[in-house]
Simulated assay, not measured.
Amino acid sequence: MQYAAGAALPVGADAIAFGRELLRQGRRNLHALFHCNSQQSNLLAGAGALDKLECGFSGLEGFGFANGLRRAVESGQLLLEDYSNLAMPLRFLGGALNWPFVPTTTCIGSDIQHFSAYAPDEVPARGKIPPVRDPFSGREIGALSPLRPDLAAIHVTLADPRGNGILIGSEWSRFELSRAARRVVLIADHIVDTDCMRQYPNLVRIPDVIVEAVVWWPFSAWPAASPGVHDADETHMKRMNEALGSAEGTAAYLAEYVHGYADLDAYLALIGEDNRRALADTATAFLLDPYRRWFLPRERIEALAAANLAGTSARNAATEVPA
């Protein structure tokens, strides 16, 4: 399965909790598509869940190189296909527009064009960014393959129960990804009343018509940041990346921080109440002030989820064919 996640910088706005859940369910052999490697793809690679990864940046900025990713690539377990930070959103855009290929002038003449993890013995690689002729100028440019992932798990700051989403902070390619993916799941810090979306329709970058499901999961970006909601947990970012540097460290990390909780309350307890309070005391908290009046309380969110689950079960029962 081709799996993509929506993230901004490697240290923010990625639904890392969704990656943890993929591991909890034993998902393997994923072909991951990330604009930027994040702690999610670092974790999935280190845990052995990926066999292919295409991304435009592979580090973790101030937290060092991604050790889980490095170990998976160097062991030969994972094929890493490298692109630029411009090429990846262009490929998502091409998928969103259903183009057969994406004309490009980025990466041309570089090692990114000439070397492919999928054809390591073919240099220059003919099939990665093949040359095409501009019919208007006659200039030779490149052709990028469009991306249409099977599933995109996109972190959003605010979502309503219908699936409309608002992003706070740098967007990167989450807009293009939401249109390119065959199925889209939003993982939201806050669930808001739909009146919030009606008040700010110009800010709804992901509309409900393309969304498969909405998941309310506070601190889903932890230990990375969610602008306006919480800062990065720098101590855990370093600890996590260090653990992913070895098989033994990864196994211990998975036992505690992937398989060590059963529900949302246990997950939040794992982060720690005092730690969550400190992380939420962020200088960017004012960004959420215009929307707070529409935040739905937990009991309302859980009631909506229960009603939705009951409705789904009833619909499934109604469509069952007797033996």
Score class of each variant (00 low, 15 high):
A243M: 06
F219P: 09
G6N: 00
R298C: 04
F219R: 08
Y267F: 15
G165S: 08
S220R: 13
R292I: 11
A262P: 00
D160W: 04
Q77G: 05
T105P: 01
A306I: 07
P201Y: 07
L264N: 09
P227D: 04
A243S: 14
F219S: 00
P207H: 06
R24Y: 03
E122T: 15
Y267N: 06
H236C: 01
A323P: 12
A305C: 05
D195R: 15
L304P: 02
T282Y: 07
P146C: 03
I166G: 11
D193Q: 10
E273Y: 01
G59R: 10
A159R: 11
D82P: 00
R133K: 15
H31C: 02
L44V: 07
E81H: 05
D208K: 14
N85C: 08
Y267K: 14
I210H: 06
Y291F: 15
S145L: 06
Q199P: 01
A159D: 00
G163N: 12
V215A: 11
M237L: 14
S110E: 06
I206M: 07
S173E: 11
G169K: 09
S110Q: 04
S137E: 02
G6R: 00
A225Q: 11
W217S: 11
V184T: 14
F175Y: 13
F34C: 02
L147G: 07
G26K: 12
V215R: 14
I206T: 15
L86S: 11
R300N: 07
I210M: 08
M237C: 14
Y257S: 13
V215G: 07
E299I: 09
F92E: 01
V156Q: 06
Y253C: 00
D193H: 15
V229P: 02
D134T: 14
A221S: 14
L43I: 07
D263V: 12
P103L: 02
S246Y: 01
G249S: 01
P89I: 12
A7G: 13
R300P: 02
G59P: 01
D193V: 11
F65A: 06
G165V: 13
G56V: 03
